[in-house]
Simulated scan of single mutants.
Amino acid sequence: MSRPERGMQFAKNIRVIDWLKTEILDQISNLFKGLHHANQNMIIDSLSSLLVTIYVLARRMGLPFRELDQAVTTKLREHEAEGHQLEKWYGDLSALDDYLTKR
């Protein structure tokens, strides 16, 4: 790939990353609207869109999906070990860890 082509690819990647960041904010806004209106479909749509956007953003930044998955698992186990309140109160972190490990 020639230098001008590389520069164009770099600029395009930066624009895509910026667009993905705005998508995250947009989906957070939609999530809050869904929560406000108690609209389960809107909540699920926003959360799933957030997950997809985060994975694509990670990829655009050079991080493999598997590495992101491993980091999430590590973070869950760290929080479990530290006695995070969500784990103490509801067991959410270990439940998610189990789910991710078994799929």
Rank of each mutant, 00 (worst) to 15 (best):
34 G>M: 06
51 L>M: 11
39 N>E: 10
52 V>C: 10
54 I>P: 00
44 I>Q: 13
51 L>Y: 10
52 V>H: 12
40 Q>V: 12
41 N>A: 14
55 Y>L: 05
48 S>T: 13
53 T>E: 01
31 L>G: 01
55 Y>C: 03
30 N>P: 01
41 N>F: 09
33 K>D: 08
36 H>E: 10
40 Q>Y: 11
52 V>D: 09
27 Q>L: 06
40 Q>G: 08
33 K>F: 06
49 S>T: 05
38 A>C: 11
54 I>A: 09
44 I>T: 09
55 Y>W: 06
34 G>Q: 06
42 M>K: 03
33 K>G: 00
48 S>F: 03
47 L>C: 10
46 S>V: 03
38 A>M: 11
44 I>M: 11
56 V>C: 00
27 Q>D: 10
35 L>N: 08
43 I>M: 05
35 L>W: 04
37 H>D: 14
29 S>G: 09
54 I>D: 04
42 M>N: 04
43 I>A: 02
49 S>Y: 01
52 V>K: 13
42 M>D: 08
47 L>S: 06
41 N>H: 12
33 K>Y: 04
29 S>C: 12
53 T>S: 03
29 S>Y: 10
36 H>N: 13
56 V>S: 01
45 D>K: 04
53 T>Y: 00
52 V>M: 13
55 Y>P: 00
49 S>A: 14
46 S>D: 04
54 I>V: 15
48 S>P: 01
33 K>T: 06
56 V>Q: 01
38 A>N: 15
55 Y>F: 11
52 V>Q: 12
31 L>A: 02
44 I>H: 14
36 H>K: 15
38 A>T: 14
28 I>Q: 07
49 S>C: 06
53 T>Q: 01
39 N>C: 09
39 N>H: 12
28 I>R: 02
29 S>T: 01
27 Q>S: 09
47 L>Y: 03
31 L>W: 03
27 Q>T: 08
39 N>A: 09
28 I>K: 05
47 L>P: 05
